[in-house]
Structure formats: C-alpha cells, structure tokens
Design a protein around this nucleic acid. Sequence first.
DNA 1: ATCACTAAGTTCCTTTTCGGAACCGACTCG
DNA 2: CGAGTCGGTTCCGAAAAGGAACTTAGTGAT
Lengths: 158, 158
Amino acid sequence: MRWTDLENEACPVARGLSVIGERWTLLILRDCFLGVRRFDDFQASLGITRHLLADRLKTLEAKGLLRREQYQERPPRFEYRLTETGKDLFPVLVSLITWANCALPSPEGSPYRLVSRQTGQRVTPVLCDDETGARLNPRNLRLLMPGEDAPGDEPPRR
Amino acid sequence: MRWTDLENEACPVARGLSVIGERWTLLILRDCFLGVRRFDDFQASLGITRHLLADRLKTLEAKGLLRREQYQERPPRFEYRLTETGKDLFPVLVSLITWANCALPSPEGSPYRLVSRQTGQRVTPVLCDDETGARLNPRNLRLLMPGEDAPGDEPPRR
DNA sequence: ATCACTAAGTTCCTTTTCGGAACCGACTCG
DNA sequence: CGAGTCGGTTCCGAAAAGGAACTTAGTGAT
C-alpha cells in the first residue's frame, strides 16, 4: 500500500487519514474552528509556505470539508469556511486536544477553552455510549475485526 | 514554523500532531488496538516500507506511546505494545472512525465493530459533557482562544 | 554440515514532497 | 504615480518516502 492509495482502503482510519492525514491539514482545520477564513491569515497563523497552503486548501475544498466563498468582487477575493462535513470533524479535534493536554502538557497550559454556546460554561468532553451513557475508554471497549468474536480480554496473537 | 518544530508549540493540536501526525503513525496505532504487536505483522498489514516502520516504531517508543518488550531470548525478539498513554488515544481513533464511516463511507461498509468488554454489545460512541452528560457537537460548542469571550455566535473576522 | 526459513531490522538508491523566497495580477488608496 | 493588499504561482535545493536487496542470529529438516 502506498500512502496516496489510502482512500481506497476499506478501513475508515485509512480513509479518514487520506483526507486529514497530510502534514498541516488538521492545523488548517483547527484554525477554521477558531474562525480563520482567509489565505493570508492562515499563512500568518501557521507559518506554512504559501505553496503548501494553497495545495491543502484546494484539497480540502475538493474533499468537501471546506467551501470557497467569494466575499468581494473586484478584485475577486475568496475565503474558506467549514462545510457540515468539516464541522463534523469537531469530535476528532476535541479528542486530540484532550489527549494532548493530558499526555503532552505544555508549560503554559492549554491556550484553549471549550465552552457551550448556550450557557457559556466550560465543558469537559468525554466519550460515551449514546444508548446507555456509559463512559467509554480503551479498558472497557474492544475494536473488533469482522471475524473476531466478542469475549476474551486478550486479542489473538496473530 | 516548520513541521518538525510542532512539539514546541503551545497549541495542543500542534503538540499532538508532533507525535501522531506523521505518515503511517496513526495506522500503526490502529493495528496496535487491533492486537498487532510484531514487526513483520505490522509490515504485512500496512504495506509500509520496513525502513519507515522501524523509524515510526522507534519514535512511538521514544514518545512513550509504545513499549518494546522482549518475548523470547536467543534470538532476542521484541514486540510492541501500547502504553497507558498510547491507550489514551482511543477516543481520537474512535472519533476518526465515526467521522470517516459517515463522511467517507466505503462500498463494503466499515470493517470494525466497537463492543463493550463487559457485555459484548456494540456501542455507539458520542462526545458528551462529563458533568451534564449533554451531547457535544460543533453547533453547540465553541473553541475559544485565550482572549476571546464566551458569547456571540459568530467568531471574530480576524 | 548444509540448506532453507524466520524475525527484526539496516543499507542503498530513486522518486516525491516540503520549505524558503521571490514573483505576479488585479485592484485600492493617497 | 507609487506603495500596499490579497490570493495565489514559480523556482529550486533539502528532506522524507518508497522499493528492493542484504544482514544477523538463530531454528529445524536432510
């Protein structure tokens, strides 16, 4: 398998990474969630080369995560906004932030706050089962391949 | 900013990607969650070059996500297992799988099932507020930078 | 003892991607 | 008229990835 063939894999992790797994892509999307919309603002925020930025924005638009919108005529100027599919990535970003805050703490602490739009209160994101509300973690869950059966705490050797 | 300087950023997304943002790394970790532990098994599963695989495993061990364990002497052979820090990445992987299953469906459907170790039942992962149990999604949440205030539905322009 | 095989890498070389800086085009402002 | 703004593109050297063969330390079969 080559990295560039990931999109044709059956595995959703591989398919997902074919869209958001390139260098800088997830940082561009982070900026989108923070409200950045314009080429030069992305570039200033990331320090990425303009060449690479143009390429990533084009790809994200083609994959349907960003929408390019004209915000003035003469000269025509465009900005980039998250589509619904792009916004659906929020849990991925939130999970990554939560993990990194815990596993790789920075001396200054996390620069972000996650707040409810309704109440303005900070929230603490956790993964739950939608039906039972039970907290999900790697110790009480297993990720199974098609053939594998449910029980047994130890996955098979090979 | 260069890609290789990400680890020194204050942003947890950047810090996180400095560890799991390289090509193949998250696919290696996916295999770990599926029970793969040995060099040749990773290589067969991923189709990655052995050179790159050796490099990524070394990095993941150095960053504390994998632990290298000797499973036989003479000849000495080692396998790779997730550390607690590595297992803590589970929500990131689960969120990515959930997003990709929805946004990038494959013709064959997702090959994975997520089941409880206790009950063996399938679970549907969602992100909740740990305190209130309220479902979190990008429409009712905002990611704020240090200076930003809570209210206002539209983030500032720049 | 020799041959084939295994597991976990390493080496060598080519191709692709990234990084840095300058340049371009269409306009506005003073 | 010249300087500034915004959203890119072009060019080129450096770094990373891809492919295939080779190595090392053993085992087991003939």
